[in-house]
Lab assay of single mutants.
Amino acid sequence: RLTVMSLQESGLKVNQPASFAIRLNGAKGKIDAKVHSPSGAVEECHVSELEPDKYAVRFIPHENGVHTIDVKFNGSHVVGSPFKVRVGEP
């Protein structure tokens, strides 16, 4: 089962990169992540390998409000996905 680490749920800033990590815990497959902005825009997140069992997911929010992040592994949502994060002040 995958572990999502260091996902900041609030206090993110517009046009500043945000990232979190995913540990695969021995699982093999493909991570896919997309961020949905409050206006409905959908953007791919950048996924990069940090070490053999750990990946970083990076995105840049372009507007204030609550964004939804879909994180999928081999086509299925990971536990807790979709995640909600707040950009800007509430």
Rank of each mutant, 00 (worst) to 15 (best):
R1L: 08
R1M: 15
R1C: 13
R1G: 05
R1N: 11
L2F: 06
L2P: 04
L2G: 04
T3N: 15
T3M: 15
V4S: 09
V4P: 07
V4N: 10
V4T: 12
V4Q: 14
V4Y: 09
V4L: 15
M5P: 12
M5Q: 01
M5I: 15
M5D: 12
S6D: 15
S6M: 15
L7E: 03
L7C: 08
L7F: 08
L7T: 09
L7W: 03
L7D: 09
Q8F: 12
E9Q: 02
E9T: 15
E9H: 02
E9G: 06
E9N: 10
S10W: 01
S10K: 15
S10P: 03
G11M: 12
G11V: 04
G11E: 08
G11S: 12
L12C: 05
L12E: 11
L12S: 06
K13T: 10
K13L: 05
K13A: 04
K13R: 10
V14S: 12
V14I: 09
V14C: 03
N15L: 08
N15G: 13
Q16N: 05
Q16V: 12
Q16W: 06
P17M: 11
A18Y: 14
A18D: 00
A18C: 15
A18T: 07
S19R: 15
S19W: 07
S19P: 01
S19I: 04
S19E: 14
S19N: 14
F20M: 02
F20S: 00
F20C: 08
A21Q: 14
A21T: 15
A21C: 03
A21H: 15
A21N: 14
A21G: 10
A21V: 09
I22R: 00
I22Q: 00
I22G: 00
R23W: 05
R23T: 07
L24T: 08
L24K: 04
N25I: 12
N25T: 12
N25Y: 07
G26C: 04
G26L: 02
G26K: 04
G26T: 03
G26H: 03
G26R: 04
A27V: 10
K28R: 10
G29R: 01
G29F: 03
G29A: 03
G29D: 02
G29V: 02
G29T: 02
G29E: 05
G29Q: 04
K30M: 14
K30V: 12
K30E: 14
K30G: 05
K30C: 12
K30I: 15
K30H: 12
K30P: 03
I31D: 00
I31E: 00
I31M: 04
I31H: 01
I31V: 08
D32V: 15
D32N: 15
D32R: 06
D32G: 05
D32P: 00
A33N: 04
A33H: 01
A33I: 14
A33E: 00
A33F: 12
K34A: 10
K34G: 11
K34P: 01
V35M: 11
V35C: 07
V35T: 05
V35E: 03
V35A: 07
V35P: 00
H36C: 10
H36V: 13
H36Y: 08
S37F: 11
S37V: 12
S37L: 06
P38F: 01
P38C: 08
P38R: 03
P38M: 00
P38V: 00
S39T: 05
S39V: 11
S39C: 03
S39P: 10
G40S: 10
G40A: 14
G40I: 02
G40P: 02
G40W: 04
G40C: 14
G40R: 04
A41V: 14
A41Q: 15
V42P: 05
V42L: 15
V42R: 12
E43I: 15
E43P: 01
E43H: 07
E43S: 06
E43M: 05
E43Y: 05
E44K: 02
E44I: 01
C45P: 07
C45Q: 04
C45A: 04
H46R: 04
H46I: 02
H46L: 13
H46Q: 15
H46F: 13
H46G: 08
V47F: 01
S48F: 11
E49L: 12
E49H: 14
E49V: 09
E49G: 12
L50F: 08
L50W: 06
L50E: 10
L50G: 08
L50P: 10
L50S: 13
E51P: 07
E51Y: 06
E51Q: 13
E51A: 08
E51V: 11
E51F: 07
P52F: 09
P52Q: 11
P52G: 10
P52K: 09
P52I: 14
D53H: 05
D53W: 03
D53N: 08
D53E: 06
D53Q: 05
K54T: 13
K54I: 06
K54C: 05
Y55A: 12
Y55V: 13
Y55K: 14
Y55M: 11
A56W: 05
V57F: 04
V57P: 01
V57E: 00
V57M: 04
R58W: 02
R58A: 07
F59K: 00
F59G: 00
F59D: 00
F59N: 00
F59T: 02
F59C: 04
I60F: 10
I60R: 05
I60A: 03
I60M: 14
P61L: 01
P61N: 01
P61I: 02
H62S: 14
E63I: 13
E63D: 13
E63P: 00
N64T: 07
N64E: 14
N64C: 09
N64F: 08
N64S: 10
N64L: 06
G65Q: 02
G65L: 02
G65H: 03
G65T: 01
G65S: 07
V66G: 12
V66I: 13
V66K: 15
H67C: 14
H67A: 08
H67D: 00
H67R: 00
T68P: 05
T68Y: 11
T68H: 11
I69L: 11
I69Y: 05
D70K: 08
D70R: 07
D70H: 10
D70G: 11
V71E: 00
V71F: 04
K72F: 09
K72P: 00
K72H: 12
K72V: 13
F73K: 02
F73C: 05
F73W: 03
F73V: 05
F73S: 05
G75E: 13
G75M: 08
G75R: 11
S76F: 12
S76A: 09
S76H: 10
S76T: 13
S76R: 09
S76W: 07
H77D: 11
H77I: 06
V78H: 05
V78K: 02
V79R: 08
V79S: 12
G80K: 09
G80R: 08
G80S: 09
G80D: 12
S81G: 09
S81C: 08
S81K: 05
S81H: 06
S81V: 02
S81M: 02
P82D: 01
P82C: 02
P82N: 05
P82K: 03
F83C: 06
F83A: 08
F83M: 05
F83S: 06
F83N: 03
F83Y: 09
F83E: 05
K84T: 05
K84A: 09
K84Y: 08
K84M: 04
V85K: 13
V85G: 02
V85T: 14
V85M: 12
R86C: 07
R86F: 10
V87Q: 01
V87S: 08
V87T: 15
V87F: 02
V87G: 01
V87W: 00
G88R: 06
E89Q: 10
E89G: 06
E89K: 06
P90S: 06
P90H: 12
P90W: 05
P90T: 13
P90D: 10
